[in-house]
Every structure is written in structure tokens, then in C-alpha cells.
């Protein structure tokens, strides 16, 4: 089901299918899925375990190659007619996509600042500029006071905010979040969702989050359900 809110979609997926295996072992993870997410939108993806949520996130994040369909990110067609249109998919991710993980996945050997700065370093910024921008982002996400702390010394909420800062570091316009609040209590989950909303609005980014967290359902503009690889939606 194709959904449009207005403007040019940042994430545009048309008729994407993905199957694993063949013959009797064939599993259809995604069946003819279409979706648009527009700038400023915060969208949720729900579904039972094994419904294809993570596969769908991986397809949009250019980690898993679809079997058929068409994918456009930030106005650039990246997959069409059975093959990727870019060979440098990691660079594509670096430029266009930010990831937020359930367990933040901060690099344990880097402090908060460097966990954010590493993305900028990879994008070619010099060390000083990377750190300056990283500290700015940490301040923006109200975790600047923990800029020198190692991940092991951060609370769950602080670590998730540092992870969000990392996801935003290279100013991506698409943010994919996998259970971003699952490890947080309801208060901290609310704070994280407010932050994501703030980012979506101020940076005109599209945010697509996989979640099971009912306490934050009211924070999304739209909620999609994946069942047996098929997508349907309900507006909230």
C-alpha cells in the first residue's frame, strides 16, 4: 500500500519483495511491499516476530538486496530491476542513512564524543572539525556533559542519546531505528521519541522505527503493520 503525506518522499519503496531460499525451503520475508516516508515524518513499523520488519529495515538501509522491486532514498534511485544502482552501498549509507539500535551499539573503546566523531571522520572531516561537530550534537541532545564518558559508564538513556547523536552526525535525511526505546523505561523512552521528533522537524528528516513499544505509539505520525511480509497501515 502506497502512502503519501505530501512533498517528495525521502524513502520511497515500490513493490519490493524479498525471499530467502528456493523450492520447499523458500521463505517470503517481504511480499510486494510499497511505502513512502516524507520529510518530517516519524513512522512506526509494527509486526510480530518473523513478519519481515528487520528485513524491510535492512532493505531500506541497503544491507539486504531485495528480490524484486524499486527503492529510492532521498531522491536517488538505489535499486531497480533486480540490482543495486550503486556499488558503494556503505558510502551511500554514510551519506544518506543514520541507524539507531536497540542496544545503542556504541563502540566500547571510544568515548561519547569519539563515538559520534567517528562517523564524521569516515565522511572525511578532519579530527578537530569532527570533534567540534560531535560536541555540538551531544549538546543538542542534552548529553554534552557526558562527552568524555566511555559507553560502559553511561546510563541507558544517555547511551541512546549518544547513539542518536551518532546517527545524526553526518546530517542524514533518513533515520532507521530498530527498537530505539526497548531498553528504556517509559520516561526515557518518551524523551528519546521527543528527540527524534525534534530531529525530524528541524532537519526535515524521515524517521522509520521498528518497535513493539506500545507506550510510544502515540508519538508516531503513521504506523504500519507487517504481517507475513505484507504491509498495511493505520494512521494514528
Amino acid at each position: 500500500m502506497d502512502q503519501s503525506v505530501g512533498g517528495k518522499p525521502l524513502v520511497h519503496v515500490r513493490n519490493v519483495s524479498k525471499h530467502f531460499g528456493d523450492g520447499e525451503t523458500r521463505v517470503d520475508a517481504l511480499r510486494d511491499v510499497s511505502l513512502e516516508v516524507h520529510p518530517g515524518e516519524v513512522v512506526a513499523l509494527l509486526g510480530p516476530s518473523g513478519s519481515g520488519k528487520t528485513t524491510f529495515l535492512n532493505v531500506i538501509g541497503c544491507i539486504v538486496e531485495p528480490s524484486t522491486g524499486w527503492v529510492s532514498l532521498d531522491g536517488e534511485i538505489v535499486y531497480d530491476d533486480g540490482h543495486w544502482l550503486r556499488s558503494d552501498l556503505r558510502k551511500l549509507r554514510l551519506e544518506k542513512v543514520g541507524f539507531i539500535f536497540q542496544f545503542h551499539n556504541l563502540l566500547p573503546f571510544l568515548n561519547s564524543t569519539d563515538n559520534v566523531a567517528v562517523v564524521l571522520s569516515l565522511a572525511g572531516y578532519d579530527t578537530a572539525e569532527s570533534k567540534r561537530r560531535a560536541i555540538e550534537l551531544l549538546d543538542y541532545l542534552e548529553v554534552g556533559h557526558r562527552k568524555d564518558a566511555m559507553p560502559a559508564n553511561l546510563s541507558g538513556g544517555e547511551a541512546q542519546r549518544v547513539a542518536i547523536a551518532r546517527a545524526l552526525a553526518n546530517r542524514p535525511r533518513i533515520i532507521l531505528a530498530d527498537e530505539p526505546t526497548a531498553a528504556l523505561d517509559s520516561q526515557r523512552a518518551g524523551i528519546v521519541m521527543d528527540l527524534l521528533r525534534k530531529v525530524a522537524v528541524e532537519q526535515e528528516a524521515a524517521i522509520l522505527a521498528v518497535t513493539h513499544d506500545e507506550k510510544i505509539f502515540d508519538r508516531f505520525d503513521r504506523i504500519f503493520h507487517l504481517r507475513d511480509g505484507r504491509l498495511d497501515d493505520q494512521n494514528t
Binding site: R90, R93, F99, L107, V118, L122, A123, N170
Partner: peptide, 16 residues
């Protein structure tokens, strides 16, 4: 491995 997967996901090239 998890850190390497994370680095790949955030766009680190193989040479890194």
C-alpha cells in the same frame, strides 16, 4: 564482531 558490524553499518569502508 559486533563493533565491526556496527562500523560497516555506519559506512566504514573495508580499508578502515
Amino acid at each position: 564482531l559486533r563493533e565491526i558490524a556496527t562500523l560497516k553499518l555506519i559506512g566504514a569502508p573495508d580499508r578502515t
